[in-house]
């Protein structure tokens, strides 16, 4: 997505979040969670501001951001497609479903499609094992899938 996320408003929102959390012990993680919500990701400019305000070295913050899979340095696509690869889904053939989606939107797991519209993720169990195999596209959940269902589902978003 080409839209600029590093806007003045967003930084003001972040400043407010930092202000509210500053006094807390172990404030970094909650602030990063909020930051990710505000900007959609945690680019280095955002980390710099947090570093300065909390007086934590940037290297340490970068270390934390890159450690956790939920934090991302780059913006995600408009649609985030998560394919559950938890055990229950895996034994019910989730892998071919992931492969098929990857083929349809031309994105590798963990990456964005060429137009930046989709982000494909292979996730761990989302706890809907009764519906296995399951994918989620943003808030929508699709369960009990077979490979053939994929093109039809994707049509709605393409």
């Amino acid at each position: 997505m080409a839209t600029n996320i590093l806007t003045v408003e967003n930084f003001q929102k972040l400043a407010k979040v930092i202000e509210e959390n500053k006094g807390r012990q172990g404030a970094l993680m909650p602030i990063l969670h909020e930051g990710q919500k505000i900007f959609g990701c945690l680019p280095i400019e955002v980390q710099k501001m947090i570093s300065e305000e909390l007086e934590i070295p940037l290297s340490e913050i970068y270390g934390v951001v890159t450690f956790y899979s939920q934090f991302s340095l780059e913006p995600k696509g408009e649609y985030v497609i998560s394919v559950c690869l938890g055990t229950a889904c895996y034994v019910k053939n989730a892998q071919p479903i992931l492969d098929k989606i990857s083929e349809v939107i031309e994105a590798k797991p963990g990456g964005n499609s060429p137009d930046g519209k989709f982000t494909l993720l292979a996730t761990r169990c989302i706890g809907a094992c009764g519906l296995a195999p399951v994918i989620t596209i943003n808030e929508d959940v699709y369960g009990r899938l077979v490979v053939d269902d994929i093109p039809k589902i994707m049509e709605k978003y393409l």
Binding site: M29, P30, L32, H33, F67, S69, Q70
Partner: peptide, 8 residues
């Protein structure tokens, strides 16, 4: 409450 961030 403290939230994790996706690390097993």
């Amino acid at each position: 409450i403290r939230l994790g961030a996706g690390a097993f």
